[in-house]
Simulated scan of single mutants.
Amino acid sequence: MFNSPGWASFIDEKMAEGVGAAVSMPRLGAYCEPGTPLAAGQAATFVAPVARHGRNIVLSEALYPVLHMIEVVLRNRIHDEFSTHFNDPAWYEQGWVTPRHVDMVNEAKADLLRKRKQPDPKRVVAELSFGFWCGMFHADYERGSGPWPSLLKKVLPRVPKSWATRSKVRDRLEDARLIRNRVFHHEPILQFSDLYSKHRSFVELLGWLSPDARKHIESLCRFNAVFNDKLILTPQTDPEQPGVGEGLQHDKTDAD
């Protein structure tokens, strides 16, 4: 049924129905087009959703490098600059930190103790979630003894002047966190029509934190190739064949 990508050419009705049983119909149903639901016992209805599910997997895999690097570099940049500025590697214990973040720090320490590890600053920093680090750009930290805006250019040394505000950086980070959470929790991302531009914005964000980290990721990133390798259907003559929707293209024929 499919000519491309290569992995999609192996999807036949038998495989598709088996994949549906393996991953569950409710999960696979998220990849159906409106009006073309899965139908138990009708294997043909499974083929396009399984292909879209597969495309979701390979796109998620291709997004992983930049999302991984943003999370690691962001926390290290914040920790290094905050430790210096506040003259304390355990800066997260100071009074300017919000109660919500104090709770997250305490949970991280408790998790480390359950693992029989000492909750020293380096371990605590590594244990804290990406949500914690994105939350450090909340407006609460632009008041009193908080780090912003004075540390913005230290944490993000290459941020352009037009983006050099706490709120704009937070918007970019929250966009990355949304996609990161969907990718890491195996949820659909095909519904984002601007996924290509989102990826570019994530690469730019990484460059604001570290140009070297950006160069490293760009040298190994496969996102553009994967994104452009869209699902291509073989020509069909059956007008009753279920629709295949976004992310799928037909081979061109003389009539196209």
Rank of each mutant, 00 (worst) to 15 (best):
P121M: 08
V125R: 04
L74D: 01
E107N: 11
E17P: 05
V50N: 01
V72L: 13
A43C: 09
G95R: 04
F132H: 00
G131T: 03
G135I: 07
V23Y: 01
T36S: 15
G131R: 05
C32A: 09
A43K: 14
W91D: 02
A48G: 03
V47I: 05
G18I: 06
G95A: 14
A8T: 04
E33Y: 06
V97K: 00
F130E: 00
E13A: 15
D12Q: 05
V73F: 04
L113V: 15
V58N: 02
F132V: 00
D103F: 07
T84H: 12
A8F: 00
P65K: 10
L63A: 06
M69Y: 07
V58A: 02
D111S: 13
V72W: 09
A8D: 01
F46H: 12
Q94C: 05
M136Y: 01
V66L: 11
P26L: 12
E13D: 13
G29I: 07
P34D: 15
G135T: 04
I78V: 15
L74K: 05
A43W: 09
F132A: 00
V50M: 01
G20A: 14
A22M: 11
A21S: 13
V125E: 02
A16H: 05
L74V: 11
Y92H: 01
P89E: 07
E81I: 10
N76E: 11
F130I: 04
Y92K: 00
E81P: 06
M136A: 01
P99H: 11
A51G: 06
N106Q: 15
Q94M: 10
H79A: 09
Q118A: 15
L113D: 12
P99F: 07
V19G: 02
G35C: 14
A40K: 14
M15W: 11
Q118F: 13
P89S: 07
A62M: 08
G20M: 08
I57G: 01
L113G: 08
P26F: 12
G95N: 13
D88M: 07
V97W: 03
D120F: 12
R114S: 14
G41S: 05
V105G: 00
V102W: 02
E17Y: 07
D12T: 03
L74Y: 09
Q42E: 15
G18P: 05
I57H: 05
N56W: 05
G29H: 12
M104W: 10
R100W: 03
F10I: 01
V23L: 01
P26R: 10
A30V: 08
R123I: 03
R114V: 12
H53N: 06
M136Q: 04
W96Q: 10
E81Y: 04
A139Q: 11
V124G: 02
W91C: 03
R27Q: 12
L74H: 04
V124W: 03
N87S: 15
P99I: 09
V58I: 13
A90Q: 11
K14Y: 09
V124R: 02
F46N: 10
I78L: 10
